[in-house]
Design a protein around this nucleic acid. Structure first.
Length: 114
DNA sequence: ACTCTGACGAACC
DNA sequence: TGGTTCGCCAGAG
């Protein structure tokens, strides 16, 4: 594992997502210059458990604001609980305010630094 | 070496 | 409107 590994780059982006905000697998992939690799971002999240520093994977949802990765948080409901503890409202595994809470890496981070 | 499977998303029917 | 295909590519069998 080196600093430039795709997974490491993904983790570094995810760690920058502010509490109470969310982004998408595709947005991260596009930010890293690999727009068609959203699946790899998902795979990276799957392997993010136990990483240090902590990787707030619960702040990454799919492009429609659905908590598609909730099954991977151990007890079903953990992902939702983490988000709600940050003030993110959820209904039926979806974030109604998704469009307002969406945090785009391309808008706040410099790709050259990743 | 080869096939299959995805925490995705866009393009096609 | 909705199901299927396809690009992507790292692991597992």
């Amino acid at each position: 594992m080196t600093q430039s590994d795709f997974f490491s780059r993904v983790y570094r982006v995810v760690r920058r997502i502010p509490p109470g905000r969310v982004t998408t697998y595709g947005a991260i992939a596009r930010f890293l210059g690999s727009g068609q690799s959203a699946r790899m971002v998902g795979w990276a999240m799957n392997k993010s458990y136990g990483q240090t520093p902590f990787v707030p994977a619960h702040r990454v949802v799919n492009r429609n604001g659905f908590l598609t990765g909730k099954q991977h948080f151990g007890f079903s409901g953990t992902m939702q609980q983490l988000l709600e503890s940050e003030g993110v409202h959820i209904e039926n595994d979806q974030i109604p305010e998704f469009e307002n809470l969406f945090w785009d890496p391309l808008k706040y981070l410099n790709p050259d630094l990743f």
